[in-house]
Design a protein around this nucleic acid. Structure first.
Lengths: 172, 172
DNA sequence: TGCACCCACGTGATTTTATAACATTTAGGC
DNA sequence: GCCTAAATGTTATAAAATCACGTGGGTGCA
């Protein structure tokens, strides 16, 4: 056991977007901003919750709950599933983390702050996940919902395919 | 065990669309059309596969793999998970059935024949699932993909909310 | 016709993902 | 300080999915 989301395709540590960027700052900025938001809204960013968010920010890719659990154990936290799931529930509920349904995995939100409807692009080769925005009430699904009288509360939009880096490796 | 997708909210047997329609004809028509397509394409719609499709058409709602497995057992087929999963793999691969990622469940395709990108509306109260069409390469996600150089192969579009029937019951 | 191959099926075991239930601790309001 | 509510730790179990291996039934071809 001591699982990870995948056989761990070596070199492809799957950047959250598909382009590189200054990490490190990105992690601590996001943590600070999360802390600020929690203070502002009276939410409790407890040690476990903070750690899970930090792990997801640091790893910068989608991690399964049990992969997170392993990392929590290493960090000296409880190591039973509910520990991870509860922290994830909190983070997802408050928009700091999203669940990628297609992968049964979790990613730190790339556009924190305002509530939004995330859309994901998932590379089937290297498992990289990029987050974009979707517009729930627009487009085909919005029209269908209006026509059917369906009230949309939340949307899951995930595209599976090949990221630029993998396409290059494969095509050439 | 002997599971079903839900505690089975009694009266809400969750129509596939949100409006009623002539069932029965709908089931046998779909089966016949699937058979025709398989013959045409040299695919083997074996007894188990046919049975699974029939069950999904008949139930007319999203069923978990284990719920299907129970029904298969009752019908005298093998009752180990791979039996259901293999049949479902075949049916999904060939477009007769879709997987609803949000529910880890399966529905018979409501628009068989041509290949398409399904979009689902899922009622969180009665679990009804309606299928609409999405346009993968259009809209926000299509633009994001083009901008990022991501090649979309498949999309998951699922809206969660309240169906007309449940909205009526609740609001009044 | 017979044989060989491939595909599908049956079954047992196991892995991965997720939740239930309950005791214990901790933080904050008063 | 004390009470309450929320968060945590832990045990157990449920639900979803896959692996591995053996068997049988068509299809194609000699």
């Amino acid at each position: 056991m001591t699982s990870d989301t995948r056989p761990e395709n070596p070199e492809s540590a799957a950047p959250l977007g598909f382009q590189h960027h200054d990490h490190g700052a990105c992690v601590s900025d996001a943590l600070a901003s999360a802390e600020a938001q929690c203070t502002a809204e009276g939410l409790r960013l407890t040690p476990v919750r903070r750690k899970v968010l930090e792990l997801l920010l640091r790893e910068h890719r989608a991690l399964g709950a049990y992969a997170i659990l392993d990392l929590l154990r290493e960090a000296g936290f409880g190591s039973q599933p509910p520990v991870a799931y509860r922290a994830l529930d909190f983070l997802v509920e408050n928009g700091f983390v999203h669940k990628v349904e297609r992968l049964n995995a979790f990613v730190a939100c790339a556009h924190p702050g305002k509530t939004h409807s995330p859309a994901f692009m998932i590379c089937r080769l290297c498992d990289a996940v990029a987050e974009a925005q979707s517009a729930p009430t627009k487009g085909a699904i919005g029209n269908a919902a209006r026509a059917a009288g369906f009230q949309i509360e939340r949307t899951v939009v995930e595209a599976e395919g090949v990221c630029p880096a993998c396409a290059e490796k494969t095509d050439i």
